[in-house]
Computed example of a mutant assay.
Amino acid sequence: MRQAAISQAGLSVQRDGRRAVLRSLPDEVPVAMVFNGTTQAVMMASPADLCDFARGFARSEGIVETVDQIETLEIVEHDAGIEARMWLADDRGAQLKARRRALLGPVGCGLCGIDSLEAALRPLPCVTASLHLDASEVAHATDALRAHQPLHDQTHAAHAAGFLQPGQGIVLAREDVGRHNALDKLIGALDARGLDPASGAVVLTSRVSVEMVQKTVMAGIPALIAVSAPTAQALRLAQDAGLTVAAFARGGGFDLYAHPERIIDGERHVV
């Protein structure tokens, strides 16, 4: 199996001189998502936790509603890349034909090659979970996620997505060179562990884009916390879908943009 990080010799050029270095760098390979014998998407991804990636991609893209609709899953390596081969229950296979898309893009690309503009902003279900998060947990969520990023510590070139449960901190995390891939892996890992997506919040080391909102909502997760900024379109989608969004969560504070009723400060909701 390919490794998520490899050692690479190089030359470090600094103001005080040059020196030979040996660094751990993140690897990336083409990963094809194959459903019922047909490739739906090809993405450059870290070659780790690929079963989680496949399940999470299938869930967050709406290809399946529950992981038991994936009847078989196998990871097949080739010289040119890796296939995640999935066979779906009959009813999901029929619906899949209506959503056929081909995707080949840069690292972590979530929308390249999508069939239509309408598909890019597909209608989302409404998240109604009554999750309550303490404001101090939200403010320190991205700091807490740092303890769950071994690939980043090795390479300084990987994103992470974590799952924060009230009173328990980050209970699960996944990493990848692509932010979309890290979130898909996390969603797949939640399913594999039997953790209720409605019981916590996604924590991201990235900005909040349209596709990150879409994936979070499709997984049934009611809150999203990110270290960086949201886009305006992402916030419009989040507001309509009932998703709580906290951004710029760093340095002991955060900005709250959508559905603040899930964030509490002591006994009071933050509004």
Rank of each mutant, 00 (worst) to 15 (best):
I114E: 07
A141K: 11
A241C: 03
H148A: 08
K97A: 14
L151G: 03
Q95K: 12
S199W: 04
L237G: 01
I63G: 00
A157T: 00
L88R: 04
F248K: 11
S199P: 09
R174F: 08
A48Q: 11
A182K: 11
A158H: 02
R99K: 11
V76H: 04
F35E: 09
I221K: 04
L164M: 13
D16L: 09
L204Y: 07
R2Y: 12
V34C: 10
R55P: 02
K97D: 11
R262C: 08
S199Y: 03
V67N: 09
D90H: 11
A234I: 02
D176T: 09
V42P: 04
F248W: 12
F57V: 02
R207D: 03
G10T: 07
V210I: 14
A160R: 04
V67T: 15
G169P: 10
M218C: 05
P26Y: 02
H132P: 00
G169M: 04
S228K: 12
L22G: 07
C112N: 02
I264F: 06
L131P: 01
G200M: 07
A129M: 10
E261F: 05
A234D: 05
L204D: 07
G194K: 09
V217N: 05
G113D: 08
A201R: 01
S46L: 14
S116L: 06
V29Y: 10
A241H: 03
A144T: 08
D184E: 10
V31P: 13
A198R: 11
V202C: 08
A32N: 14
G110P: 10
L88K: 03
G81N: 12
I187S: 14
E137S: 13
M1D: 09
K215L: 07
A98W: 03
I82H: 06
A201I: 00
D196S: 13
A94P: 00
P230C: 04
D255N: 13
L131W: 05
A32S: 15
Q233H: 05
R250L: 15
D265H: 06
R15T: 12
V210Q: 08
G37E: 11
A246E: 02
M212I: 00
D143V: 01
H148L: 07
V64C: 00
A141W: 13
G266S: 09
A5N: 06
G10M: 12
A158V: 05
I114L: 09
H269L: 07
G56T: 05
L96N: 04
I263D: 08
E61S: 14
K97F: 05
H159Q: 11
R268E: 14
H259I: 10
A89V: 14
T244S: 13
R92E: 10
E61V: 06
L256D: 02
P197Y: 05
A5F: 07
L50A: 04
M44H: 15
H269G: 11
Q149F: 01
D49I: 08
I170R: 00
C126H: 08
S206W: 00
V203C: 03
A135Q: 13
A247Q: 10
V271T: 14
M44F: 15
I63C: 01
G17Q: 13
